[in-house]
């Protein structure tokens, strides 16, 4: 099935959805949203692309195998859970930076991930 509507739409939707997922990730700090929903939206973008152009084309723009992304993502989230232990705090505690990062301000880096 090659529908021109789907082909055209997914070509433009891919970057927009990725941008939107990034927005959701950052917004999730204080409002509904966050990493989980952001990740879902990002993956939907690629799923839609694969519906339109086939799996191989999508793998080409992904550049990395999804299987190598799983341990990376897991490792980042597991580290964000365990890093507070190094500071003598319980796991999953939010860490705040003392110095503000320019343009972003005081921010919780750890729970953001």
């Amino acid at each position: 099935m090659k529908s021109p509507i789907l082909l055209t739409a997914s070509k433009y939707l891919l970057p927009i959805l990725l941008l939107f997922s990034f927005f959701l990730l950052l917004r999730g700090h204080y409002y509904p949203g966050g990493g989980f929903v952001g990740g879902l939206v990002a993956s939907i973008a690629f799923v839609l692309h694969s519906f339109a152009f086939g799996t191989e084309a999508t793998m080409k723009i992904l550049k990395r195998k999804p299987l190598s992304l799983i341990p990376t993502g897991l490792a980042i989230s597991a580290l964000s859970v365990t890093i507070p232990i190094l500071f003598g705090l319980p796991p999953m505690t939010g860490l705040w930076l003392e110095e503000p990062i320019p343009f972003i301000g005081h921010d919780r880096i750890i729970p953001l991930l």
Partner: peptide, 23 residues
């Protein structure tokens, strides 16, 4: 309060992740 009691959980989590890297 002891912040290290989850050690037995984390050790297996990290072992699992390392093995995923060595897929």
């Amino acid at each position: 309060i002891d912040n290290n009691i989850l050690g037995p959980v984390f050790i297996h989590l990290f072992t699992g992740i390392l093995q995923l890297i060595a897929w």
